[in-house]
Nucleic acid binder design. Structure first.
Lengths: 189, 189
DNA sequence: CAAGATATGGAGACTATCTCCACTTGTCAA
DNA sequence: TTGACAAGTGGAGATAGTCTCCATATCTTG
């Protein structure tokens, strides 16, 4: 599914150079760089950049794909080793924590979530699935309400991701997670 | 504070034409129109457009300022006529409802909230204040928790606003509000 | 190693944004 | 009214990103 094309050697090299440079730049806070300049900085031509990553979002997604996958994997681990409600809490708190030390990821996720209908959104869907899994386990366990879907939770996360690079947003993000977790608890109706 | 400059007659006319046309276009779903074309369509020159509204966001804010103010006023009314917790619930449910029939407003709010540090954000701050008021009343009343600030709630609202024009987001938005309201309830600790 | 497939790079077309200023229009005091 | 000054106008063109195109270079495979 992923290995449809055995990229030529030099092509792979260029692609990697692009990714490496992008990662480096994102890590140092440069997000709004002129797109063409990514190419220049990575030592490849503009055309090459556009061939590998048709849009800025595509580049961002590729850069953070691994990281996102790792986070989703973590959701699985938590789910396997903790009671569902705790796993959910641990995941969400870890998520917010991670976002605040990886603003590039936050931006990227915000973009991905806002682009649901697109091909490059499967990164977003991955997170969606992880979330749905955690919730389902909680419902099963009886500690999480069953009348609110994963979409609603994702919507809140989208807000958090979007607001992330606002200075001083950390506290509010934690507050939002608190609300989320308490809101999700099954209510003794 | 608002009446610093008694705009010349023709200037006001142009400004109004611009606003009217923008309102009309927004209402019909055209948000991403070439900015210069607003001018053309409203029958004024590009320069005039830019003088009155330096950015797209400024135009959007002006278009929805009234509406936003009305919403905030409504928060006040609710607060005056209902127990705080109910006022909060009514406001939030009304808010989401309104957003989903006024997508332009949703977009605009999403933008405003993402632009906290700017001059044109006072529209956003207005909402912020209304929210803070509702919460404070609830805390006073003893039905709303006091350990989570208005910022956290606004963050969730931002997510809702951003996701609004996704088809089928209505249900999720309602879910998010449910989570929010239940999460905000003072817990019998 | 030759031939075909694959990939490159960067000049320049294209597009949206925004500025600038010679000119028009409104205002107001006389 | 009218003259003179302030206020506002419009739209051509400067500026700056984005993206395409294709002659050329580089890989790969038989």
């Amino acid at each position: 599914m992923t290995a449809a094309k055995p990229l030529r050697a030099d092509a792979r090299r260029n692609r990697d150079a692009l990714l490496a440079k992008a990662r480096e730049l994102f890590a140092s806070g440069c997000f709004d760089l002129r797109f063409d300049d990514f190419a220049k900085l990575a030592g490849v031509g503009t055309g090459t950049l556009y061939r590998h990553f048709p849009t800025r979002a595509a580049l961002a997604e590729a850069v953070y794909r691994e990281e996102l996958t790792a986070m989703c994997a973590r959701a699985g681990e938590l789910q396997a080793t903790l009671p569902a409600a705790e796993a959910l809490a641990a995941f969400l708190r870890g998520f917010v924590n991670h976002l605040h030390t990886h603003l590039g990821l936050a931006r990227t996720l915000a973009t991905l979530m806002a682009t649901r209908s697109d091909a490059l959104a499967d990164g977003g869907r991955e997170l969606d699935r992880a979330m749905a899994g955690l919730l389902a386990a909680g419902v099963e366990e009886g500690t999480i309400r069953d009348d609110v879907g994963a979409g609603a939770v994702m919507m809140v996360l989208q807000g958090i991701c979007t607001a992330c690079d606002e200075p001083g947003s950390r506290e509010d993000a934690d507050g939002a997670v608190t609300l989320l977790l308490d809101g999700l608890r099954r209510r003794p109706s």
